Computed example of a mutant assay.
Amino acid sequence: MSAFQNSAHFEQVFKDNWELMYQSAYCKIGNQSVVEDMLQEIFIDIWQRRESLEIKSGIKGYLLTAVKYQVMKYFDELTKTRSGSANTFPESFYEEDVFGFEELYKEIEIAVEMLPPRAQLVFRMSRLEGYSVDEIADKLNISPQTVHNQLTKSLKIMRGELKHLAPVLAVYFVA
């Protein structure tokens, strides 16, 4: 089954995630137009592969990983342009970039595991899989207000557990 049910779902995923993706890339690159081009490339690629694309983890993790690789690709191309050869950045630069995103995702997963089971499910569906409140309510056969209540409690817990990552996760945990 495709990761995107239809164009409206794809558009919602874009709206829900572009700002976090933008901030993640911008803090590394610092150039608005380059970052906007990167995000456009990512979403064009996803749209072109939408029929066969299967995202097994969570959509946010997938998108942040895509940003990570685009940032690395950008620096590789920049290096080639300036020096005529690849990989003039120290290997530790790439390790820090890769581990930064992987560690971020691991810390989020650890914090999610601290939530009660039902709250975990609602949180994952909302923040990691991109479902709307109404879609979650329908799928779990609960009221939209219950979904809102679960998300509010979960976000409060998550903010507390991940407060040391506040600048990076500010958009991720907005109610």
Rank of each mutant, 00 (worst) to 15 (best):
Y172N: 03
E129L: 06
L165F: 12
V98F: 08
L140G: 00
A86W: 15
K80P: 10
I44C: 07
Q120C: 00
Y94C: 03
L162N: 02
K106H: 02
E54K: 15
M125C: 07
H164F: 08
R49Y: 12
S7C: 09
E36T: 06
I55C: 14
E36A: 02
A86Y: 15
L104D: 03
G58S: 02
V147R: 05
S92M: 00
K139E: 04
F4Y: 13
L165T: 11
E161H: 02
I59Y: 05
L53C: 15
M21R: 04
S126W: 04
R127E: 05
V122L: 02
V112Q: 08
W18H: 05
Q145L: 06
L20T: 07
L128D: 00
A3M: 14
I46A: 07
R159D: 14
L115H: 10
V133Y: 09
L78K: 14
K60D: 01
K156N: 05
P90N: 15
F14Q: 00
A66G: 02
V71N: 00
Q5D: 14
L53I: 13
N31M: 10
E11F: 00
Y26S: 10
T88V: 14
K156E: 09
L155E: 06
E91I: 07
Y172W: 04
A119F: 01
I110M: 11
S154V: 11
F173C: 06
R49V: 05
E102G: 04
H148W: 01
S52I: 12
D76S: 14
S52L: 12
N31R: 11
S33V: 13
L121S: 02
D138F: 05
F14L: 10
G61V: 07
S33Y: 15
S24E: 09
T79L: 10
E129Y: 01
A137Q: 01
I46Q: 07
E135T: 03
S85A: 09
F75D: 10
V112C: 06
T88I: 12
K68D: 08
F123L: 06
L169V: 11
R127M: 00
K80G: 11
S92G: 09
E41Q: 12
S85N: 12
F93T: 09
G130S: 13
M72W: 09
E102C: 04
I42S: 01
T81H: 00
D134G: 12
Y131V: 00
P90A: 15
N141S: 08
Y105S: 07
D45S: 15
F75I: 12
N31G: 04
N87E: 14
L128T: 01
F99V: 10
L169S: 06
D45M: 14
I108G: 06
E36R: 01
G84T: 08
V174P: 09
R124Q: 08
S7W: 10
G160W: 07
